[in-house]
Design a protein around this nucleic acid. Structure first.
Lengths: 155, 155, 155, 155
DNA sequence: TTTT
DNA sequence: TTTT
């Protein structure tokens, strides 16, 4: 159940290779850094300006494994997920907050990448994978050729 | 698995009560008509113009049951789903196409409504749920534990 | 121009009244705190758990004025915007980061609210609007004529 | 102004080259056919099944010109727009309805494509471009290299 | 057929 | 701090 909608959609490129680690129960967790950017001409100087936004994306379980296996620095991806702000303590013991996108869908957009991976990814400290959620099978995101699909366009 | 993203997000009002029927295997199917509208001042006449767009939304299984039970003419809802164009034959035997939004998430936005219903809904003509997809049919929308991250963010 | 997609969609309730202030050039800036929440039954204890996520939303210019005028604590809103992480220094001079949603569309979802406000909102520290982007600041959201397509769709 | 949200997000491939034509007032109109697909293993036969959905996308003005110039059969694109159902008469004089996505944002996702084109696109039968809307600016979507952006990731 |  |  949910009250409210909390949805993020990103299309961007990885700034570095995914970092994959494993939780106590063996579930993969991947951290991915994604860049989106905008550019415009500055009104005063007339110069072209570019601003890059970096997004901290976290994936769990099978989605994290797929990220670790198929994504790398420079990869272009579609990400769908939700915002989550975590509280943590820095070395001085002060409260700090970090906002991340918890991904529940990922799609590789590079030429020969392919396929969507769609799972329920949540912090899941201990009690196994999940249930009613979604998920399924996982499996390789087998690059489906889209070759000559122009045959049966119904319009 | 999916290649590509096919996503629709609607916030609008029901033009009439949902129509719920049942498939051979007992799964509920709801048809819902949702209006979204835009208005603007006509550049020439200076008059305020309004254009309403009607969306044909279809829901399956538990989501359809919830729609049938809680939604009615005038209800405001958030809908997330995918586009699907069905081919059918009219009485003259001619091919016709109808585009619908197959909902996979619905949220009632009226004051005393409440909560999201989130399922996988697919045409499901007999052979039960399907596969590669996600989901699972109906049942309570039991979400997934997310560990103990703090709730109280001070801003 | 943009490379990549950076999009956030929220439906939630304001945790408190909007805070509106004005920049040096007189443009309104509104800060809004929006809650979205999820609840589920804990697998171990069997208890119903709820987790609320708080989103820091910032609006500019006309959109900020509308927020200040029409929104209040408890208001339900639809927000569309983009993620932006700002760097700042705390009193110890340490770098801190805060992630916000910069709204470009807002829609009040309460019974007697109404209508969308749709603008381009960007940090705009002095040198006015910007360029490559779209929009332009404030003013009436005068939409665009769409020809005379029929309104009454019979389904 | 709008009451309601009517939003479509697509990532898919063009099934054929864009078809560009011009309205009486010289504004470009592009029709684009976009495929998204899903595949899953049939529960009964155990075979892998694939279902392709075709989306009829229409673009106007500068966005249409960019589509005509840069997109071709097979191109992968991100599209954002709204649903619109048009009524028309077939040769027998019968009412027919066609649902299209009217794009207001497009982004080429192929390796060396690049950049977003973001405009207001609406049917615009006669009275010229529009106003308060957004966009314009136009200009080439100049492929911005994203080379080695790993330097300044702040996390 | 909704909603403002 | 909201909402159910």
């Amino acid at each position: 159940m949910a009250r409210g909608i909390n949805k993020v959609i990103l299309v961007g490129n990885l700034g570095r290779d995914p970092e994959v680690r494993y939780s106590a129960n063996g579930a993969a967790i991947a951290n991915v850094s994604i860049a989106t950017s905008e550019s415009w001409k500055d009104k005063n100087t007339g110069e072209q300006v570019e601003k890059t936004e970096w997004h901290r994306v976290v994936m769990f379980r099978r989605l994290a494994e797929i990220a670790g296996e198929y994504l790398k620095k420079g990869s272009k991806v579609y990400i769908e997920g939700k915002l989550q702000t975590r509280k943590w303590q820095d070395k001085e013991g002060q409260d700090r907050y970090t906002t991340e996108i918890v991904a529940n869908e990922m799609q590789m957009l590079d030429s020969r990448g392919g396929g969507t991976a769609n799972f329920d990814n949540n912090y899941d400290s201990g009690q196994s994978s999940s249930g009613g959620g979604a998920g399924s099978g996982g499996g390789q995101p087998e690059p489906v050729p889209m070759g000559d699909f122009d045959d049966d366009i119904p319009f």
